[in-house]
């Protein structure tokens, strides 16, 4: 038994306790904060299981974006839930226990955790990715090369999903003004400018903001060599701007990055991604076959292709996340 097992046990205990607390509490603000804690703990577990890129994303998305979105919604709705009646909880508990029992029974057929002879590790694709990625693509981070090159179609699809979700939220919440503003008094929403005596918060967040944005750019362009890439960078960039909106008010943020610009940036990223695909088609290759981008050195073409594609992902994710936040925040201000 090595030390990692003990870290595993501690983290799993925290995770399970958080999940139980989250299920039991009736204060939705507390539940939203606990779900942020849950995500952060699971990110720690992902690091232990060697998934550094995933941990990075989960920490930025789960503890940052999701919590802000939940809090934004709670500012618009009510924050306490009713007591769950037994007629709902008992059948649900029975079904959950039954499902869990079946899954645990099925898990006895699974290979031991982290064994080297599992079907996953034995599959020829594994060695293909790990051995040939360096020569074919020349990117040390295999996750990036699989994401942007080997499975480029898949990632294009995911980017389109983010784009679609952003459009759908924009359609549902509009530009922030509901058609009928029945309530006479404007309600306090999440990003009201904080009062003047919050000087410490203002100074420190202004001090930190350039570094957060710089870090996002580092994550974006260093994704070939270390953990990072367009998805993570986009979320971090958006988080920096959301911090600005939370501390200095929504209007200041909208003056810095206008919603109109965001509405153009969300499709722009998808267009850059798909455009790289069509460029490779026109150059005589297959769709998203970056080898043809450089006539002399295929690996260099791969580098260029991955850079452009990640840039497209980064632009779409940044703009989509920020647009989601604006939609929720403006809904509160408009009322």
């Amino acid at each position: 038994m090595n030390g990692f097992v003990w870290i595993d046990i501690v983290l799993f205990t925290i995770l399970a306790a958080t999940a139980v607390g989250l299920a039991r509490t009736r204060q939705l603000f507390a539940a939203a904060m606990l779900s942020g804690l849950f995500s952060l703990t699971s990110a720690c577990i992902f690091v232990l299981q060697d998934a550094v890129d995933v941990a990075f994303t989960e920490a930025a998305v789960g503890a940052g974006m999701t919590t802000v979105l939940f809090l934004g919604t709670l500012a618009l709705t009510r924050s306490r839930e009713k007591v769950t009646p037994p007629r709902r909880s008992i059948p649900a508990a029975l079904i959950a226990i039954f499902t869990g029992g079946v899954l645990i029974y099925a898990s006895t057929d699974m290979p031991p955790f982290a064994a080297a002879d599992t079907p996953v590790q034995q599959h020829p694709l594994t060695q293909r990715f790990l051995d040939d990625s360096m020569t074919e693509i020349g990117v040390p981070n295999v996750v990036t090369s699989v994401l942007a090159s080997y499975r480029g179609y898949d990632t294009l699809g995911e980017t389109v999903v983010v784009f679609t979700a952003a459009i759908a939220v924009l359609m549902l919440l509009g530009r922030g003004r509901p058609a009928t503003s029945a309530e006479p008094k404007p309600r306090e929403a999440l990003p009201q400018p904080i009062q003047h005596d919050q000087r410490v918060l203002r100074v420190v967040s202004k001090l930190m903001l350039p570094f957060i944005l710089l870090f996002a750019l580092y994550v974006q362009f260093h994704g070939d060599y270390g953990p990072g890439g367009g998805f993570q960078a986009g979320v971090i960039f958006a988080s920096g701007l959301i911090l600005y909106a939370l501390v200095f008010g929504l209007d200041a943020a909208r003056a810095a990055v206008s919603p109109a610009a965001l509405r153009r940036m969300v499709p722009l990223g998808v267009l850059i991604y798909a455009g790289v695909g069509f460029a490779t088609l026109l150059l005589g290759g297959a769709f998203l076959d970056y080898n043809v981008l450089d006539a002399h050195d295929p690996a260099h073409g791969q580098h260029l292709g991955i850079l452009l594609v990640e840039l497209g992902v980064g632009i779409t994710v940044t703009a989509a996340m920020l647009m989601l936040f604006y939609s929720f925040a403006a809904r509160g201000v408009g009322r």
């Binding site: 005596d197 919050q198 410490v200 918060l201 570094f211």
Partner: peptide
């Protein structure tokens, strides 16, 4: 360095919000 700036600020903001 990052924590040196952010953690006290977070605690301060939390306490101030509660006081307000």
């Amino acid at each position: 360095l990052f924590m040196f700036f952010t953690s006290p600020t977070a605690s301060h903001a939390l306490a101030q919000a509660a006081l307000q």
